[in-house]
Design a binder for these strands. Structure first.
Lengths: 138, 138
DNA sequence: ACTATTAGTTTACATTTGTAGTCAAATGCT
DNA sequence: AGCATTTGACTACAAATGTAAACTAATAGT
């Protein structure tokens, strides 16, 4: 039902989530600090996001103000679910370990993760079952 | 340089990684236990993976045996990097926390993650900087 | 030997995505 | 008032993707 937010569109969304309510000029300026995209390209991306229902365009005189119609959390969760649904269940732990190693995580988040682990470790399975194959007839 | 492995292609790869060396019949059978795809569709996907260099087709009489040319780890890492590069740095911790909560992770992996956290928590930042906007001129 | 089945190759086609040009309306500046 | 600029809408177009039919060569069973 919901059209996907493509990688290119994600960059637009991040700016809007961060700045709250912005005109296209602001989006273009911020994007072009990181990406070598033409104005046109960025405008197309904005339009598509409006059409897909992820951005609201509020007519402000002759220009528009854009704001996000989907919470950042929601989008992130769906993106994250995508990843973890794509890979083998057995590998989830390793992926998480690597992610923590490779990224900055705040002390608070680390503590939170510690708590979660503590609460799960006692009845954590010795091994996780591979879910890459279809169920075998039993 | 490297063509992406698309979501549909991923399902094929997972079967090959899991089974090691398989004929198309096995792939088709396993895929169809989970997905309602025609034989033709699956054969197309296999061909594309061969063309993209992710599967090796070893001619075995008139049929082929397929095997993976890229390690599962490598593919998973790149997929994972994709996710974490797409989202705001500030949210990485939350994503990880949620992932641990929502998935089975083996006791060993949990311990490993605990170790990593322990080694990082002391100089973990109070907050992580948002990286959604282009660098501001300073 | 003949036929049904199987596996691989080719072709097809709509949709999505990345990327951008063109144009017209609205605005601001002089 | 007239022109330069900005902004949004429309059009374009190749490549990638999901999805699958058609055709062909080989094989297995009878």
């Amino acid at each position: 039902m919901n059209k996907a937010i493509t990688p290119a569109e994600w960059k637009i969304m991040r700016i809007v989530w961060t700045l709250g309510e912005v005109g296209s000029a602001d989006i273009i300026e911020n994007i072009q600090r990181m990406n070598d995209w033409s104005n046109s390209t960025i405008k197309t991306l904005i339009s598509r996001l409006v059409k897909k229902g992820y951005l609201l365009a509020t007519s402000q005189g002759h220009a528009n103000l854009y704001s996000a119609l989907i919470p950042e959390e929601t989008a992130i969760n769906s993106e994250s679910a995508n990843l973890f649904d794509s890979i083998c269940e057995m590998k989830v732990g390793e992926v998480i370990a690597k992610a923590i190693q490779e990224h900055q995580v705040s002390k608070n988040d680390l503590k939170e993760i510690q708590k979660i682990i503590s609460s799960q470790i006692d009845d954590a399975p010795k091994t996780v079952q591979c879910n890459c194959l279809g169920k075998v007839a039993d």
